[in-house]
Design a protein around this nucleic acid. Sequence first.
DNA 1: ATAGGGTTAG
Length: 683
Amino acid sequence: MSDDLRPDFYTFPPILKACVDFVDGKKVHCCVFKMGFEHDVFVAASLINLYSRFGVLDVAYKVFVDMPVRDVGSWNAMISGFFQNGDAAGALGVLNRMKGEGVKMDTVTVSSILPVCAQSVDIVNGVLIHLYVLKHGLDTDVFVSNALINMYSKFGRLWDAQRVFDHMEVRDLVSWNSIIAAYEQNNDPNTALRFFKGMLLVGIQPDLLTVVSLTSIFGQLSDQRVSRSIHGFVMRRQWIEKDVVIGNALVNMYAKLGDMSCAHTVFDQLPSKDAISWNTLITGYTQNGLASEAIDAYNMMEECINIIPNQGTWVSIIPAYSHVGALQQGMKIHGRLIKNSLYLDVFVATCLIDMYGKCGKLEDAMSLFYEIPRETSVPWNAVISSLGVHGHGEEALQLFKDMLAEDVEADHITFVSLLSACSHSGLVDEGQKCFDIMQKEYGIEPSLKHYGCMVDLLGRAGYLKKAYDLVRNMPVQPDASIWGALLSACRIHGNAELGTLASERILEVDSENVGYYVLLSNIYANTGKWEGVVKVRSLARDRGLRKTPGWSSVVAGSKVEVFYTGNQTHPKYAEIYRELRVLSAKMKNLGYVPDYSFVLQDVEEDEKEQILNSHSERLAIAFGIICTPPRSPIRIFKNLRICGDCHNATKYISRITEREIIVRDSNRFHHFKDGICSCGDYW
DNA sequence: ATAGGGTTAG
């Protein structure tokens, strides 16, 4: 090799930058070392970057500390090295030492450190850096402005993000992607869409990341047609092969649209799946109410040895376990997480609190709550809601006070938890006060959920007129669940006139949901208007709707047994009915009188008693009595609300059998013990 | 004269 072709200082940085293979990179490093170029600031920065990219941060750091002279580029390389390897604190530490040595930040420093501030939610530092940028005139740099937009977006400060965007003289693809993602991620899909159109208008072509935002935008807008065309666009460009991110975004989009069959198809066709692909699928199933599919998917994920479950996996699978009451499996996850301390993660812990609450283990929910950090509303909301479904309204209110005393800011979800807790305990005045505080002191506009809780609260307590007025004066259009709450209150209080009136509206809003036809026919049946029952039933039949079958499950040993109403095919069928007959006689001796108003069929009295005796919750309780040791507690799950007569009967059964009977229905918990229920017969 | 360190994601 002749002298003028020998590599020099300028040769190595581009080569190191181009290394996609770590082994090659190390060979180049050897070469650099032999030629004595290691301490050149350009070469060293490239080496730091190389080792950081391959996750070998200790070697990167060694190159850095061994440098006899460092310029701002050396510091920048080290800062981004720490951040690329997930060490935000390390990155900030390097920045502080750099400041200590009197080195001034440049545009590269700023654009490396702003994502660090965003990730560690360090708003103060972020704003200080923005001021520094303005003072030193760094705001003309596109990278800096883009990083500012992203940071403000992560803090939810859209107005600041928008202002940075507006002041930019030159905008590139990343600027547009950032402002689109800002609005998309802060739940404003319409504004995000306007920016997307603006981007096309100035002639910038969307890239893969633009389309990732688009999938989320149209998922949020539940626009089936455009969503499917985005899928087509991605397929035509073969972007699924290019990056797993876009495939995961499509799975998520279909899940948001409620189309889990398409979501699964896209998932199956992904050329490579990462943990996030699995998490997205599991979350989709859970959020669409398909808990057992979610559990199946999770079990399949566990079979893949190259996929390691992470925080996202836990927050997707634990709610599925809560939904079906799979306490054992949930506890198994908890045990596994104690080993790596991930149970202290606020989001994972909140799922566990919710799981314990929903599975009847209120004490475990409470003790976990006091173990974890609680500076944000997230775990508070879960524990308040747990107290609520267990009927401890007063304690829920106390926890809200504690929360304020600890300076934790309440949000709209806190008030959903509080209002529903009040409604489960019949705390009408307290509930109304919370509803007031929410609007006046917190400036939170009540959502449909808040109105639903209030209607439930007022209606169940018997203030039907008040509830009806609230619905009529709502500034937003009431949905089917609001009308449903009103209808259900009418049923409890036997108000057929109002019931048939809050019913026409409900069938307008949601004529597909059978539950409302059932409620309406209950109202007619309870007031003896059999012609009304016939009318509603034929209407439901004409529209091809079938009643959701009522089922209850009970744990016996390690097995979960499920009973449907009127089930006569169970192997222990004869024993169960014999047990129920024996119980019935004992109950009547103690003063139990069957309440036939819960029987919807127009039949003779002895047949009505038979119908009450075949309700799924009774079958499950009888099975529990037969198959578990005497005096051990029985835990029941019911998909619908417990029937009033069964509620009364269970009180007697708990006394006769000297057992604690815990029933979780679709609404809340009932603890039966010594002939009384924790709900005080209010639910 | 030629080189390095930077911003967006499900």
